[in-house]
Design a protein around this nucleic acid. Structure first.
Lengths: 227, 227
DNA sequence: ACCTGAACACCGTTCAAGT
DNA sequence: ACCTGAACACCGTTCAAGT
């Protein structure tokens, strides 16, 4: 990451919101959120920074729109006729993978609040929760729990990735550093955290994420059974 | 929010990391994350921006340290001899309240990764999960699920609060706007989101948060029972 | 050791001027 | 309608110089 952008594609077509978003995703994937600059963006699009403002309101809008493009592709690709529980697990995993491929998207999703990209996820989750037989008055609650969990994991992964990009350490090294820091904590004050340092070094983010989703799905099962 | 800082407290004591963090929290609470500037901070401390760098590495460090101060107070105040399940619920609620009182802290916590403020929460959760009888090989998983959920909710609340500060709308108005936007979605593509618009307007964030924690605790109960 | 504050290298955003 | 690019008002961070 943090590479320079060598190519300054000569412009053939005129500017459009779609072309701007596409270029923004390209920059974000290559250099992270700090690399997305109106100057870098206008440079890649062979125009001036002011031109972008004709198509986009501001940087937050741009980030949300880029995020929405990723989410739209993800939920659309995952559409299938699986059983509700499996469909939820598959959707969650697809989102996890998308946020790992585009680490900036996790942070952007969290910031996007009730806007379109989040609504897309909410809609998919909601349909499956209904199909699961959760009673209407508990649907909002279960969907928002799943949503919060998924976005929470995405946001934290995004933060970790950004730290990996910023410093010049690899992902495994970061985990080693954190694990080492936890081992150095006071045994009297942090017995549990110390005991988890080993697990941290060998754990599988993706498997833990899926296990977390299952935990919530188990909880939902309890609710559905009570109905 | 976004008020100016009228008082420029004359400096009696010399600078220290603690005094800087205290001032930073003050600014963050009053004007949000965008209001925390090295210039505003040094102004309030009656010094130059460079002086702060003698005590603090950079802005990220400052944010993490401010966040840690909030978390430390919160987990310390909540120490009690309650039953594990109640202790987890109480800790979660205390954190929710703290992140509502200091909206910037939610975003900062998510970005703090494996650092001290997060470890404090992890430690508290871990002890109670152990007391709950969750088998060792499932402890990491359950703790990190709770942690991700709690931080996810905090991060999203922080984002919402920031949006309320930025625009000149009240919190209730924001919810109304989002609900109205959801109602305007295509009935064919977003039936579930549309049906939730009403719930959104009358829902109770805090109650939903607690219900989410209970959902995970229910799921944990299933695991503990299987052991 | 600790503080000062000017200076550097940015950044998002605006806007008169062009086509 | 759409684009240009200079200009504005910032920002985090550094660093020679002071005490």
């Amino acid at each position: 990451m943090d590479k320079k952008t060598p190519r300054r594609t000569r412009r053939e077509e005129s500017l459009s919101k779609e072309r701007i978003i596409e270029a923004a995703i390209d920059i974000l994937d290559r250099s992270g959120e700090s690399g997305l600059t109106f100057r870098a963006l206008s440079d890649m699009l062979a125009t001036g920074p002011g031109a972008i403002y004709w198509h986009i309101d501001n940087k937050d809008d741009l980030l949300t729109a880029a995020c929405d493009a990723i989410v739209a592709r993800t939920v659309q690709a995952g559409a299938s006729g699986a059983a509700p529980r499996d469909a939820i697990r598959a959707l969650a995993l697809d989102l996890f993978d998308a946020m790992e491929a585009h680490p900036w998207a996790g942070a952007a999703l969290i910031r996007a609040g009730g806007q379109l990209p989040v609504v897309r996820v909410l809609e998919c989750l909601g349909r499956q929760v209904q199909a699961l037989g959760v009673p209407p008055q508990a649907q909002w609650l279960t969907v928002s729990a799943l949503l919060h969990f998924i976005l929470g994991v995405g946001g934290q992964n995004a933060a970790n990735m950004q730290r990996v990009c910023g410093d010049d350490v690899a992902r495994g090294d970061l985990l080693d550093q954190v694990a080492a820091a936890w081992s150095r904590l006071s045994p009297a004050d942090y017995p549990f955290a110390r005991s988890m340092a080993g697990q941290l070094r060998i754990h599988d983010d993706r498997a833990d994420f899926l296990a977390g989703v299952d935990l919530i799905l188990n909880g939902i099962g309890v609710i559905a059974a009570q109905a």
